[in-house]
Design a protein around this nucleic acid. Structure first.
Lengths: 216, 216, 216, 216
DNA sequence: GATGAATGAGTCTTCATTCAT
DNA sequence: TATGAATGAAGACTCATTCAT
């Protein structure tokens, strides 16, 4: 049930997975904690479903970004725009997906990490090709990739829908920052996907009242 | 006792604060869990001590960085070099300090956040002055500050002492990335503090056997 | 659940509140200690419920005793007969109610003491009026009230249902002792409420096997 | 060490034996809890010593009271005057002695109860002889004895040195109440021991600041 | 004589989970 | 479909006691 996932994301973001009880989840979702098992199958199953949904959304978006053009600069900007939009539109889901991997049991952690590695390898490949073509001025490829990803992941730490900046504004800023980071000129708007949009995930809580200070 | 703090940081980084029991802490430190109370006074006290030690170390370093020169570019690079060194030399302590704030009770959270805000305002001020002097090309100041800090904080996610890169090498890379981010030319080595070093914190675990996969 | 309260009264009377563990309570009630929380909500909640039930029973009885007649001598004897019956019929509950007030946390202690003060003020008022009318020969009112109440409270220390004396016999004795104490002639049976009876409280243990030596 | 016993009585009266930790005792006495073992030998040993001291004091006084005269009325009044004085002069010690018997382990409980039974049998014998001589009008001897003792024991619940009444005043009141209870005329002052005094026990705390509300 | 260090067993309470209804 | 009841294990923390110093 969608409402369960939303309640879970809200609480996991606020208190952490380990710090959230199954009764908290039930109360937040408005159901009995035993009913929660009926629908969602258990605490870890909820977390896995949330993470899988988020990572698959990012993978889908990433593949579409790469398909659009063969130019590494265009690809990078489109990847970043999509990633940032995902974080900005679904900050709580993205936050939980990024930070609670360690809470998973070994088996689930493996499959989630596989998805994450798939996703991150897209960035790696684009950076490699951009350096090979001479478009990117990158000193250490791995360091740059990590820095870029951390910078983008961080959006879920501070951005909230309805805040000072619109999602496209955030995308513009980060597209600019990303090209600076790799040392290539800005990509003209025509090609960089200013129209790229991202859907609200099922697991993303809608109510903006209760969790404004979720991440302090 | 220092060994307790080290054990705590090791486990908090691996399993999270809420996911770590005080019996786990005792076992990791090689003492009875009751003895732990004798020395450290409780689970949250340990976390607070670790965080305060880390943040005060960063504040001290940051103040020294700013004192050295009035040039924003120099200040920025020195701030980044120190911050990155702190994260690279004490990755587990920095990681825990960054991510477990929500686990604190209200009173402790307040004082820890005060320290963190003090620290982050140094970056804010340097960026502001650099933009005012025209040395930095910054679109949105707040976004840039967050991106910069997230990028630097991320070092503790992937760097480990003894890894492929030395700490000075990481500092060099991030100094370069930071100047790119703010749109200013590289700062000549003579002024940017290539000699800046950072001490190993008391709370940073030394043993590299047990936590290789700590953050997966 | 009533059985939990009964088990609690049995053990609190035998070992004291602080000397009784929640596992003891569970074992005595025949349930898991976690189940006890499901029903009773915690150790102190149990004690508060027991005390409130007892004191409210005494207050109700006391009010009825005063309503029956305006004659202080009649009122006194009826108060004493009811009080003594309550102690004799529910000795363990009354014993715990009287002696474990200090175990309560501040908030609960306040409300319990308020009930007790209400009850004791009934005695005070009757004694005052009896002295004013000249029916009672009382030297020091406060001392007499304390002595009278302690004497009556003490019944729960030594009386047990099914013992040598029946409850009405104990009532007769104490009615006599009370009139002696205040220096007034015996009240004729017709008016003094020889028919006053008291109900067994929900919290009073029924089983007379396990707690014969409860109060030694 | 006397100071340890005093601290213990203060805390046992306020929080109960089971509710008082050995570290509390140390803190109250101003010494380390390990030192306490050196002098006093353990928690229960302290309680036993306090109780024994109190009961032996009462036994001594009781024997002297009986030796003075063969008249049951005189004996009763002298017993009561001494008992009440003991409770009034040493209220905390008497309170603890009366109420913490159940906290003792079997062996110690036996010997303490033996002392208490010895003491109470004095009252029993006096009452018996008074009834035999026709001086006392007693219905049920056992009930009267319990009522009398409870009434006198209760003094430690509400009397505090330095309060509204002096000790001799309390003695006067209770001597009067006791004769009323047994139905004999007042005993002339000349014979009833208006000069009977009682010593402050070693275990009785002196400081009246901290424990005014000890027994609420 | 006095204490800090140390601990196993205990404290109350909450946990995730199952199951009969 | 949905839940109250139930529990063993675990949560953080305190206990009375011993012992080397």
């Amino acid at each position: 049930m969608i409402e369960i996932h939303r309640a879970a994301v809200r609480l996991f973001a606020r208190q952490g997975y380990a710090g959230t009880g199954i009764r908290d989840l039930g109360r937040e979702a408005g159901i009995n904690s035993a009913t929660l098992y009926h629908y969602a199958g258990g605490k870890e199953e909820i977390l896995v479903a949330v993470m899988a949904g988020c990572l698959e959304g990012m993978l889908d978006g990433g593949r579409r970004a790469l398909d659009h053009s063969a130019d590494p600069a265009v690809q990078l900007v489109r990847l970043v725009r999509l990633h940032v939009a995902m974080e900005a539109v679904n900050p709580l889901t993205a936050y939980v997906t990024d930070r609670e991997v360690r809470a998973l049991s070994a088996a689930n952690r493996g499959s989630v990490l596989a998805l994450r590695d798939d996703y991150e390898s897209m960035f790696q490949q684009v950076l490699e090709r951009g350096r090979r073509t001479g478009q990117f001025q990158i000193d250490d490829l791995s360091t740059t990739r990590m820095a870029l990803l951390e910078m983008c992941n961080g959006v879920s730490n501070w951005y909230r829908p309805g805040g000072r900046l619109s999602v496209p504004e955030v995308q513009d800023r980060f597209a600019d920052l990303a090209t600076r980071l790799v040392g290539c000129p800005p990509v003209p708007p025509a090609e960089c996907g200013t129209d790229l949009r991202v859907a609200v995930l099922d697991s993303e809580p809608l109510d903006r009242h209760a969790d404004e200070e979720a991440l302090a």
